[in-house]
Design a binder for these strands. Structure first.
Lengths: 346, 346
DNA sequence: CTGTTAGCGCATTCAT
DNA sequence: ATGAATGCGCTAACAG
């Protein structure tokens, strides 16, 4: 007990010091109108002077906790940080606090204790910002208590969870593949993310479909699976160079893997975009400064986090509904960012 | 009230269902020894069956909250994410929860309400993982209530706060500058971070000292201030090329800025490392795949987060002290990572 | 406009 | 080994 609760100044102390009842103090704290301005002023002053901080804990026992839970995985990935940034800012702006939990790895099945801890803290809602990998989500859905607060599921398959906010991976991937075709590339390979990720499947599906729609062949060996890391981009590209010699462009499912491609191309003196077009996905801040600058797809993950918070708050206080988050499934658009890694005429 | 507290099953419900008093349930929850194993078994079973979750809120009112607060800034920077990762894992492993706050920007003076919110939630300690910028910290120190829980200050100047965990920026920067000198570079420029950051000042100080120790001149125009972004690395390098034509190497204060340097060098067909050596700081996962791979300084920010949690927990439960976090100021070593951007003979 | 009574869910005394 | 009373800090429901 290094930081004793006992010594803290409570509502009772303030009441005594002001010569009023605790109830009146409570009213001031909660910005009620039914307090004379004289009393209010005085109480406010005393609270300031005594350095009084209402216990959020005690308040949460009688009313809403004003706290949201967030579950993430693998914070070291830039995307998650952007999302989390949107979440923290939106929550703060609305007077909400955040309880953060991180899964030790993407495929961890250990989310149950995390969720239970959040429930124990009486969060009003949970933002699940970890990827949907394999069957982990369904398992949870089945095993979990029905006492669960509203959950917003980020980035995953819209149909798998009741409330989902996701990015339009398909159209983003389709348009970047289409862009490669428009640039004259004809043998476009794909380095996908792990195929148990919904995002990976969407991006690959769009790539394949765009080729098909253009009347281009989609050979089996034109696609290979990476794991989002630059290292995997490097090794996958190494394999592609062998198994798909006609290849004249690569669409990597994220910018990090595209960087790995750029790196091996640099080693082997492959000219980009002349001999080989390279495209990524995510538009991390660095990709504009790759050599050459990378064509990629921007997604506003910050906004995703913002909307998640607003949706959850809308749900727990139905009086003030937020028009931006109607419905149970929202898909945000992405945006093609064309740079030198795919523009031959430049 | 979308998620009513009322319907939750409480300790009372469990007691009734088990035909015992609430105290006995409480004892089981707290793993006390003075409960017959028969009773315990039964209670455990009923708790499971009723899907009972003790209210962390109510418990926190009577004992430790088992919650830590974390204040970060600019999550989009990779370093912070690594630190946060270390924090979440360490906290989770010890049964602690985390309340996360993010400053809207690095130089925000708005930390006071954030800290107060954490205090209101009765956190047992606060990890301040935002940079020390200008006078912001001192201002807070003065204005803040004395009711503040123990705080661990990360990455900042060891002397400015009572408890500080930091990286040895000086020796990291010294050794990478020394490495450049050993490679035969003689006109080594520096692109620093914002000079109101302690890290920036340390890195610059070490760079300057290493040059001095080697008997090399340190002209005024050899150092220029960036803002950590690749964009600033690019523009700073552009200036350096003009103001320091003899320059044959650059030490950028982080990898992102080094990437900006690499990019402009690529544009201008400057050979690296032949004509120009380039070094960074941080060793982000991508820097190994830059073209060419970047020489940089690794810092174990994950461990920094881990230690911060352990220090705080040690402080609030003095019974079980953690030998790894004795003392009030710890400085972790860094590690030179030599890659092709500075190795001429390769 | 203000005060009184009661109780949120749990844990800390003390009993037995 | 278990139970009864009491209170953590706050607010809802009533009263006046």
């Amino acid at each position: 007990m290094g930081f004793p609760n006992r010594s803290r100044v409570t509502i009772k102390d303030v009441a005594k010091a002001c010569g009023v009842s605790t109830q009146t103090i409570s009213r001031v704290i909660n910005d009620r109108i039914d307090v004379s301005s004289t009393t209010r002023e005085k109480i406010l002053a005393v609270m300031q002077e005594m350095d009084y901080q209402p216990s959020a804990l005690a308040r949460s026992m009688r009313q809403n906790s004003k706290t949201l839970g967030v579950i993430v995985a693998e914070l070291r990935f830039v995307g998650i940080s952007s999302t989390l940034n949107g979440i923290t800012q939106a929550a703060d702006a609305r007077g909400y606090s955040l309880m953060l939990k991180e899964l030790p790895s993407f495929d961890s099945m250990e989310m149950q204790p995390l969720i239970q801890s959040l429930i124990a803290h009486r969060v009003e809602g949970i933002i699940y910002a970890a990827p949907e990998v394999g069957e982990n989500w369904k398992t949870i859905q089945r095993n979990l208590s029905k006492q669960i607060p509203p959950m917003v599921y980020l980035k995953g398959n819209p149909s798998s969870a009741p409330i989902t906010l996701s990015m339009d991976n398909y159209s983003g991937a389709y348009s970047i593949t289409r862009h490669l075709i428009d640039q004259g590339y004809r043998h476009i390979a794909h380095i996908s993310g792990p195929m148990d990720w919904w995002e990976s499947r969407e991006r690959q599906r769009a790539w394949s479909r765009a080729l098909f729609d253009a009347g281009l062949p989609v050979p089996e060996y034109a696609s290979i699976q990476g794991n989002w890391s630059s290292a995997s981009g490097y090794t996958c590209m190494d394999s592609l160079l062998k198994q798909y010699p006609e290849m004249d462009a690569v669409f990597a499912a994220n910018d990090q893997m595209a960087l790995g491609v750029l790196n091996i191309a640099w080693e082997k003196h492959i000219n980009i975009p002349g001999q080989l077009g390279v495209a990524g996905f995510d538009d991390i801040p660095e990709s504009k400064y790759f050599s050459p600058p990378l064509t990629t797809v921007y997604q506003d993950l910050n906004k995703l986090g913002d909307l998640a918070v607003r949706k959850l708050i809308s749900l727990s206080s139905p009086d003030d509904t937020d028009p931006a988050v109607q419905g149970n499934s929202l898909m945000l658009p992405t945006e093609l960012r064309v740079r030198q890694s795919t523009t031959r005429q430049n």
